[in-house]
């Protein structure tokens, strides 16, 4: 009869018994024990989450009813009504123009702002702090809020939308431009300074050329962002296709609303494709 474990002989190299818990007294625990602070955050999060759920009426029967309503929306929206395609296309075109004009001004204003914000090009620390604060404020206020403010200031229509997009673009572009400027290698700038070039010449000669591809990419992202926000800005009366969408929805013309949504989809996807194609070429 074969022995059950032919190789089980007492070894001369006695291995430490692994089942003795006392062996490694300072063994790390499987999961680091959370601190009181972590627990506190977890409890606050859970409280807010549960309250949020019940506050929004997040219940299965409401979701079910919602799904039913969504079904009837699509039933009424089908087939989409293309009879007003002319005015809708015109509104979409206006939306796109709003985005383009807004981003163009935004990018132009972002450039000096970014140079004033970046550590290596800013003339003085107080200037930098003020500019960074300004950019952060512009970024923190949502585009829809800007639109509401400018509708009050300049009245209904695309101008309010354009101004809102300018603000939003500066908040976005100035920040990323200045971060790119700070990443510039100091060598070429120093080389130009050593030839006797002035501060502005160093910026136009060494800083901007090196950062340019990144500026283009960021600006294209800004265009994508602006086209999407220009659609929504119309909802508060700041011009563009949002006005059409709002009208169609409030008049229960879901078939026209669907046409508008489809056109928005086509244009937004088109802009994104185009911009990523250009980015690939530039970078």
């Amino acid at each position: 009869m074969r022995p059950a474990f032919p190789c089980h002989k007492p070894s001369t190299l006695e291995k430490p018994a692994m089942n003795q818990p006392s062996q490694y007294r300072d063994m790390p625990t499987r999961v680091a024990t959370p601190s009181i602070f972590t627990w506190l955050i977890l409890v606050i999060f859970l409280a807010l989450f549960i309250q949020g759920l019940s506050g929004a009426g997040f219940t299965p029967d409401r979701l079910l009813r919602g799904a039913g309503n969504l079904g009837s929306f699509f039933a009424q929206a089908m087939p989409p009504d293309f009879s007003r395609i002319g005015p809708i296309a015109k509104a979409m075109y206006e939306t796109f123009q709003m985005a383009l004009v807004g981003v163009t001004f935004g990018v132009i204003l972002s450039l000096p702002m970014a140079l004033l914000c970046a550590r290596n090009t800013s003339p003085a620390a107080p200037v930098r702090v003020v500019c960074r604060g300004t950019v952060a404020t512009l970024r923190t206020i949502p585009d829809l809020v800007w639109a509401l403010i400018f509708v009050v200031a300049v009245g209904l229509g695309p101008l309010a939308g354009i101004l809102a997009i300018i603000m939003d673009t500066i908040g976005f572009c100035a920040r990323f431009f200045s971060e790119r400027v700070e990443e510039i290698r100091p060598g070429p700038s120093e080389a130009l300074a050593s030839t006797g070039a002035g501060r502005m010449q160093v910026i136009t000669g060494a800083v901007l050329p090196e950062a340019f591809p990144s500026f283009v990419a960021t600006s294209l992202f800004a265009v994508e962002k602006a086209v999407r926000s220009a659609v929504v800005l119309g909802l508060v009366g700041a011009g563009g296709i949002g006005v059409e969408l709002n009208t169609a929805m409030t008049m229960f013309r879901y078939d026209q609303a669907l046409t508008i949504i489809m056109i928005i989809l086509v244009v937004v996807i088109g802009v994104e494709q185009l911009s990523s194609a250009i980015r690939r070429r530039v970078l």
Binding site: G187, P188, E190, A191, A193, S194, T195, G196, G205, A206, P209, E210, F212, P213
Partner: peptide, 18 residues
Amino acid sequence: MLRRDIGVVFQRINLVPN
């Protein structure tokens, strides 16, 4: 004025790359 009369050649060549 003085610097433009003093050319510097660096070890890290320091051309603007693009």
